[in-house]
C-alpha cells in the first residue's frame, strides 16, 4: 500500500530520492505499525521524536499497536527543546 512520508529538519535525509520538498509517496507492506514503518525507512526511533499520523500526535506507547492504512500521512520531527 502507499502512504505519504513527511520528514522535517534533520530527518529529511531519510526521504527517498523521488521526494519533493519534504515529502514522498512511498510503498510499504500492508498492516504495518507506525514503529515498523519508521524502522522500514531506517530511521532511529529516538530521532523520530514527534510522530504525527494524519495530523494527530501518536504517543510512544501506541506506536507499536497503531496500524497504518492506505493513503495515511506519517510525519516525523526530531526533538525540539532549546530556547
Amino acid at each position: 500500500m502507499n502512504i505519504t512520508l513527511k520528514c522535517f529538519a534533520g530527518l529529511k535525509r531519510h526521504l527517498p530520492p523521488h521526494a519533493k520538498a519534504n515529502q514522498a509517496v512511498v510503498e510499504v507492506d500492508d498492516n504495518i505499525s507506525v514503529y515498523q514503518a519508521i524502522d522500514y525507512f531506517n530511521i532511529d526511533r529516538e530521532e523520530a521524536y514527534l510522530v504525527i499520523l494524519n495530523g494527530v500526535f501518536v504517543c510512544p506507547p501506541d506506536r507499536d499497536s497503531r496500524i497504518l492504512k492506505e493513503n495515511d500521512t506519517l510525519a516525523l520531527w526530531p526533538e525540539v527543546a532549546g530556547g
Partner: peptide
C-alpha cells in the same frame, strides 16, 4: 515518555 520510552534527549 520520550521516544523509545526511556532516554531523554538533551539538545
Amino acid at each position: 515518555l520520550g521516544a523509545g520510552g526511556s532516554k531523554e534527549p538533551e539538545q
